[in-house]
C-alpha cells in the first residue's frame, strides 16, 4: 500500500499531499505521523495541500484529528497552501478546522513553526538545535 512520505526538517515534519486522498491513505498518514512525532520529538507539523483538489468531510475530519493528536504530542499543525475551492467546500461542510493554524504557502507555514520553536526553544534550552549537530 502506498504511503505518504514524511520529511523531517529541523524540528518540523513536512507532509505534502500530492495524490488523491483515499480514506485508507489518510488513516495510514495519521498513524505514521503520530509515530514520527513521538520518535523525533518534532514541535511542528506542516501539511501542504496545494495539490489537493477534492476534499470531503472525511479528509476534513482527518486533518482535525491529525492536529488533535499532534497537539497531544506537543506539536503544532499548520495546513498550508489550501486552494480557494477547497476552503469554500470545507466551510460549506461546516468544517472550519478550528485549532489548526493555516498558512498561504509552505514558506509562511514554516515561519509559523519556526517562530513557535524559537519561542519555546528558549525554555527547553534549544535542545532540537543541538540535536541536529
Amino acid at each position: 500500500m502506498d504511503r505518504i512520505p514524511i520529511l523531517k526538517l529541523g524540528g518540523a515534519l513536512i507532509v505534502t499531499i500530492q495524490v488523491d486522498m483515499q480514506d485508507r491513505l489518510a488513516i495510514a498518514l495519521e498513524e505514521d505521523l503520530s509515530a514520527m512525532i513521538a520518535r523525533t520529538g518534532a514541535r511542528g507539523v506542516l501539511i501542504e495541500i496545494s495539490a489537493l483538489e477534492i476534499v470531503d468531510s472525511f479528509i476534513g475530519r482527518m486533518l482535525v484529528s491529525i492536529a488533535a493528536v499532534s497537539r497531544v504530542l506537543d506539536a503544532e499543525t499548520v495546513v498550508a497552501g489550501m486552494r480557494p475551492a477547497v476552503a469554500i467546500t470545507l466551510v460549506e461542510l461546516g468544517l472550519e478546522l478550528t485549532g489548526i493554524r493555516t498558512a498561504l504557502n509552505v514558506e509562511r507555514g514554516m515561519a509559523i513553526i519556526q517562530s513557535r520553536i524559537a519561542e519555546e526553544g528558549e525554555g527547553h534550552g534549544g535542545d532540537w538545535d543541538r540535536d541536529e549537530s
Binding site: M82, P84, L90, A103, L104, R108, G109
Partner: peptide, 12 residues
C-alpha cells in the same frame, strides 16, 4: 462568518 472562515483556511 463563512467568508472569514474560508479566508482563515487559506491562511489569511
Amino acid at each position: 462568518l463563512k467568508t472569514v472562515a474560508a479566508a482563515r483556511l487559506m491562511g489569511a
